[in-house]
């Protein structure tokens, strides 16, 4: 979350610098440089806009977090497996894996949906995405309290409508 915020701040500064240079070249009447800076300003604005959206989604996920775990395994639709050792935040609206944000249930019926949640003694498995592009995320939850697990399952059901399958408890 913090790294996403920092990255957004960097883009804010890039955008400001581009604007300042544009103004400078307008004042000293260097047309070619001005055009270059205008283009850079537009590009940096688009990137800033994207970062801002990413930050908003990350903040939404962070505000609604239900679990924070130290590591995770992400499997994409083409079975590529990726082990992440960064802190992972799980929420009813998605996941934050280091710099990466995976969201669901944010964009209505056309958006990405959470499809399935499974929990056992060690892991929590989340399956989300569209029919042809599904992501599987496996996290080590390190929970030992059955009551806590039940609370998480209930929260997921209440917020997303997905019934968590709890096994081996």
């Amino acid at each position: 979350m913090e790294s996403i915020r920092r990255r957004r701040l960097i883009f804010v500064w890039i955008f400001i610098v581009c604007i300042l240079f544009t103004l400078l070249f307008v004042v000293i009447q260097k047309t070619k440089m001005m055009v270059v800076c205008v283009l850079l300003s537009i590009i940096s604005f688009v990137l800033l806009y994207q970062q801002n959206r990413l930050y908003s989604t990350a903040k939404l996920i962070y505000d609604n977090r239900i679990l924070t775990v130290p590591s995770s395994i992400v499997t994409t639709h083409n079975s590529t497996e990726k082990r992440m050792t960064e802190e992972t935040i799980v929420s009813t609206f998605g996941l934050i894996l280091g710099n990466k944000v995976y969201k669901w249930g944010c964009d209505g019926i056309r958006g990405v949906r959470l499809n399935n949640v499974q929990m056992d003694h060690e892991h929590i498995r989340l399956i989300f995405g569209a029919e042809n592009k599904k992501f599987h995320v496996e996290l080590l939850h390190s929970l030992s309290d059955k009551q806590k697990v039940a609370e998480i399952a209930e929260k997921i059901r209440h917020e997303t409508g997905v019934q968590t399958q709890i096994t081996d408890w």
Partner: peptide, 16 residues
């Protein structure tokens, strides 16, 4: 809950 969470829920309701 936060206001942005409410907005997300409202957006989902609109979509549905």
């Amino acid at each position: 809950i936060t206001e942005s969470t409410v907005k997300t829920h409202v957006r989902n309701i609109f979509s549905k």
